[in-house]
Computed example of a mutant assay.
Amino acid sequence: MNKQSYGLAAQGGALPVSRYKTKLNLNERVAVSACWQVERRQTKHYFARMCDSLQQQRSLQGKSTQYYHYSNESRMLNKLLLGVDSKSWLASRGLCGQVRDHLTEMQLSYLAYLERCNADLIDAGLVFSERKRKLAIMLSYHTASAAMGDK
């Protein structure tokens, strides 16, 4: 982890301070970090829910669930969110590690939304390609309403 671009990392936080155009004082950084951590926990919660839904649905179909099934779901959601695959997104920013650890609060919020919706669509029995199509539409509506202040 690069300490220059991760001002809070040395203080035990996880939020990259370099994302903000203005300098933040310590209290502001702590507040931003706390909000980021709440959003990050949400993604963990909804990812686990999505994985449970996937395992349950595949079990109902008499299929086993392999590790790559979970990876496929995660890759699909990251690509919907970022517009490119995670590896390319990280590389274009000179970052490494888990993509989620480098997302902004808003991006984490959108990712949690996608994970929650994907779990619901899995529970409804939709196949991967149909879920991907519906999630892309849902994300575009969700981001448009957030941009207009209706969130």
Results as ranks from 00 to 15, higher is better:
Gln4Gly: 01
Ser5Pro: 00
Tyr6Cys: 10
Gly7Lys: 10
Leu8Arg: 13
Leu8Asp: 08
Ala10Tyr: 02
Ala10Ile: 12
Ala10Leu: 08
Ala10Phe: 02
Gln11Ser: 09
Gly12Arg: 05
Gly13Tyr: 04
Gly13Asp: 07
Ala14Lys: 12
Pro16Cys: 03
Ser18Ile: 13
Ser18His: 12
Tyr20Leu: 05
Tyr20Pro: 00
Tyr20His: 13
Lys21Ala: 14
Thr22Met: 03
Thr22His: 09
Asn25Met: 12
Asn25Lys: 15
Asn25Gln: 14
Asn27His: 08
Arg29Asp: 02
Val30Phe: 00
Ser33Lys: 00
Trp36Phe: 09
Gln37Arg: 09
Val38Asp: 01
Thr43Ala: 01
Lys44Gly: 13
Lys44Gln: 11
His45Phe: 12
Tyr46Met: 05
Arg49His: 02
Arg49Ile: 08
Asp52Phe: 08
Gln55Pro: 00
Gln57Thr: 14
Gln57Arg: 15
Ser59Asp: 07
Ser59Glu: 11
Gln61His: 08
Ser64Ala: 05
Ser64Trp: 03
Thr65Phe: 06
Gln66Glu: 14
Gln66Arg: 13
Gln66Leu: 12
Tyr70Lys: 10
Asn72Ile: 06
Glu73Gln: 15
Ser74Phe: 08
Met76Lys: 13
Asn78Arg: 07
Lys79Pro: 01
Leu80Ile: 14
Leu81Lys: 07
Leu81Ile: 09
Leu82Glu: 06
Val84Gln: 13
Asp85Arg: 11
Asp85Cys: 10
Ser86Glu: 12
Leu90Phe: 07
Leu90Ile: 11
Ala91Ile: 10
Ser92Thr: 13
Arg93Ala: 02
Arg93Trp: 06
Leu95Asp: 00
Gly97Asn: 09
Gln98Arg: 11
Val99Ala: 15
Val99Gln: 11
Val99Lys: 08
Val99Thr: 15
Val99His: 10
Asp101Ala: 15
Thr104Ser: 15
Met106Glu: 10
Gln107Cys: 02
Ser109Trp: 11
Leu111Arg: 06
Ala112Trp: 04
Ala112Ile: 12
Ala112Glu: 09
Leu114Ile: 11
Leu114Trp: 03
Asn118Gln: 10
Asp120Lys: 05
Ile122Glu: 02
Ala124Pro: 03
Val127Gly: 03
Phe128Cys: 02
Phe128Tyr: 15
Ser129Trp: 05
Glu130Gln: 15
Arg131Trp: 03
Arg133Val: 04
Ala136Thr: 03
Met138Asn: 05
Leu139Gly: 01
Tyr141Glu: 09
Tyr141Asp: 10
Ala144Phe: 05
Asp150Leu: 12
Asp150Gln: 09
Lys151Asn: 04
